[in-house]
Structures are given as C-alpha cells and as structure tokens.
Computed example of a mutant assay.
Amino acid sequence: MRFGVRGRSPGQLQRPTGVTMDMNGDIIVADYDNRWVSIFSSDGKFKNKIGAGRLLGPKGVAVDRNGHIIAVDNKACCVFIFQSNGKLVTKFGARGTSERQFAGKRGGT
C-alpha cells in the first residue's frame, strides 16, 4: 500500500520519519518538517494531525497500551505523550547531559 502526497497542509507529508499503528489499525506518522504527527485510517485516508504548535521535529512515534501516542522530538529533545485526540498528557526531557535531558554534546563534524 502507498498513500500520501508531499506538502505542508494537513493530510500531506513533508518528511515522514517514523511510523506505527494503533490498536484500531490507524497509521500514525511522525512528520519532521511539518512539525506534527499525522493520523491516517488503515486505508490511508487522513483523519487528524496532533502536536502542531508543540512539536519542533518529531522523529519517532509509538503507541502505548492505553492508546497514547508517544512522539520523540529530535529538535526539542523531548518526549511528548498525547491522547489519540491530540490532547497533551505529558512531556519530559530537555537538551543537555543531566538527568531527564537528551542530546548533549555531539562529537564529529
């Protein structure tokens, strides 16, 4: 199966970087450049976007046993947990090397 078109509007994908499925068979896509997570039905029809205005660069996405959508935000160095309707449950993390922080000093060029 293949679905989606390139773009910056809801239902379009700019740079998908992570994908998972929920218990209902919906396809959940982390979209790094659009800065949100898109939810599609099992047949590829757009249903909703979540995290817009909060996410800076989601790279990965998962669903927990309660149906919460967990998005790992590479740019914000945070993990966001949303209800499936998009309501933020919690977030944690920050840039740094201390406890509960991510993406400390990088080596290389």
Rank of each mutant, 00 (worst) to 15 (best):
G57T: 07
V72Y: 05
S38A: 13
G4D: 03
P10A: 06
G11W: 02
S42I: 00
H68A: 00
V5Q: 09
A52K: 12
K75M: 15
S42M: 06
I50G: 02
G96H: 03
N24A: 15
Q14W: 10
R65Y: 13
L56N: 14
S42K: 12
R100F: 05
V19L: 15
L88K: 03
I50C: 09
I27T: 02
I69A: 07
G57Y: 00
S41A: 03
S38G: 05
K105W: 07
R2Q: 11
G51R: 01
G53C: 11
D43K: 03
V89R: 06
V63K: 01
Q14H: 13
V63Y: 12
V79E: 12
F80L: 00
P58N: 05
D22P: 06
F46N: 09
C78D: 02
T20G: 04
S38D: 09
R15T: 15
V72I: 11
A52R: 10
N24Y: 04
G25P: 13
Y32T: 08
A76D: 13
V63I: 02
I70S: 03
F3E: 07
V63Q: 09
S98A: 08
G67W: 05
K47I: 14
F80D: 05
G4Y: 06
I70G: 01
K91I: 13
A30V: 04
Q14L: 13
R54A: 14
F102Y: 10
S9K: 12
V63P: 01
L55T: 06
G44I: 00
K45Q: 14
V37Y: 03
G60D: 10
K45C: 09
G7E: 02
K105A: 11
V89K: 07
S41Y: 08
A103K: 02
R106N: 02
G53Q: 03
G93P: 07
D43P: 05
G60T: 03
F92R: 07
R95S: 08
G57H: 08
R15A: 15
V5M: 06
T20P: 02
R54S: 14
L88I: 01
F40V: 11
T109E: 12
N24T: 12
M21A: 13
G107P: 04
P10D: 11
S42E: 12
S84H: 12
Q101W: 11
R8M: 14
E99I: 10
P58T: 08
L55M: 01
F40A: 05
Q83K: 15
T17F: 09
P10R: 03
V79G: 00
G11E: 04
G86C: 10
W36R: 11
S42D: 07
H68W: 07
N34K: 01
S84K: 14
K49H: 15
N24M: 13
M21S: 12
F46R: 08
N74P: 11
M23Y: 14
L13S: 11
D33S: 09
G25L: 09
P10S: 08
R35L: 14
K47Y: 04
C78M: 13
V19P: 06
I69R: 06
Q12T: 08
V19W: 07
R95G: 01
V61T: 02
N24R: 13
A52V: 13
K49M: 15
V5I: 03
K75P: 09
F46S: 09
N48A: 08
F3N: 08
G53N: 00
G60M: 05
D43W: 05
G18H: 06
E99F: 04
Q83C: 04
G11Y: 00
V19I: 15
A52P: 01
A94M: 03
H68E: 00
